[in-house]
Amino acid sequence: MTTNALPPVVDADTWQRQLEELRTREKAATRELDAIAAQRRRLPMVEMPDYTLEGEDGPVRLVDVFDGMRQLIVYNHMWSPGEEWQCSGCTGFTSQFTRLQFLDNYDARFVIVTQGPLDEALAYKRRVGNKMTWYSTANSPFGTDVGAPPGEGFAVNVFLRDGDTVYRTWHTSGRGTEQLSHTFALIDLLPYGRQEEWQDSPDGWPQSPAYSRWPTSKDIATLYGPNPA
């Protein structure tokens, strides 16, 4: 016997019928996401100034952050000056991306830009075991101009390069980043889901305050850092 809440137990035919009913909604959502992506491909774009960021090898123009590719995804990582552990959401989100070479086939690159001073940012990257390439916009208005000013939120921005001219094509923040995360995609498949209080779950399902099950930045460093547990 268990005291945990459980889904109802039914026969296989009933289960299959209800799964097929859900599948109808899942397929509709997939088609809607396809339509959204089609609209995204038709968005206009805006030309960007010639920003200079800071990279591991020194100052680098935004156009050179593309590293020869035509398309660029930038994750603007939150930064709190003087803090040992930075935003756990940003740290957890970016820790997922350890193998990005597949983007080469799509003429694209994915990097992190943060408001933190470069030496501190790179030290933090190493501490938490992050594998992405990091740049700093601490001495540039770039972060502010793309929705991630100092001391404020995170963002995802997408850019397109035409020769030496860079254009901004898309932006999101908040829960708009969830589709880029495989963690939520996996967790949402589970019977109990994210187990957060805001979610619509059956009575008795385990629920906790939002974010309380997320790993801390220190947890991530323990799991993925230079000396993982």
Rank of each mutant, 00 (worst) to 15 (best):
Y106D: 15
E56F: 00
D11Y: 03
T133H: 01
S217I: 13
G163Y: 03
E84V: 13
L62S: 09
V60M: 08
Y192R: 04
D57Q: 11
T169C: 06
R31F: 13
L160K: 03
W15Y: 02
S140F: 03
D57L: 10
E83G: 01
E178V: 10
I220F: 01
L43K: 06
P8I: 13
E56P: 01
T114W: 00
E54P: 00
Q179R: 08
L122C: 02
Q39M: 08
W85P: 02
Q199C: 04
N105K: 13
T169A: 13
R40L: 14
V111Y: 00
D145I: 05
W198P: 00
L180A: 07
V46H: 04
V46A: 11
G82Y: 07
I112T: 11
P202K: 04
L19W: 05
R168K: 10
Q86I: 11
T165V: 15
Y192Q: 06
G176E: 08
V60G: 03
F93D: 03
M45Y: 03
Y224R: 06
Q86G: 06
T137L: 00
S217P: 03
P49C: 04
Y224T: 04
G58W: 05
M1N: 11
G116R: 02
D164M: 06
E32V: 11
L22A: 14
A35C: 03
N157I: 13
D57T: 13
Q16N: 09
P215Q: 08
Y135A: 00
G55V: 11
V46M: 09
A148W: 00
P7A: 12
S181Y: 01
Q195P: 02
V60I: 15
E21V: 14
V60R: 07
V158W: 03
L223V: 11
E26F: 07
K131N: 12
S173A: 12
R70N: 15
D11S: 05
G129I: 11
W134I: 02
G176N: 05
F184G: 05
G58Y: 03
E178T: 11
M48P: 02
L22Q: 13
P206G: 09
A29T: 08
R109W: 12
Y224F: 12
I73K: 07
V60W: 06
Q115E: 14
Y224I: 02
E196D: 06
Y106T: 08
T183D: 10
T91R: 02
E54L: 06
R61C: 08
W15R: 04
D13V: 14
P59Q: 11
K125Q: 15
G68M: 08
L103T: 04
G153R: 03
T172A: 11
A35V: 11
A123L: 10
I73E: 15
L118A: 09
W198R: 08
P49E: 09
Q101E: 15
F159A: 07
G89Q: 13
E32P: 00
E152P: 00
V158T: 12
K218Y: 04
S208P: 00
V156P: 00
A12V: 15
D11N: 12
R213N: 10
L160A: 12
Q18E: 15
L186I: 15
A38P: 02
Q71I: 06
V10C: 05
G174W: 01
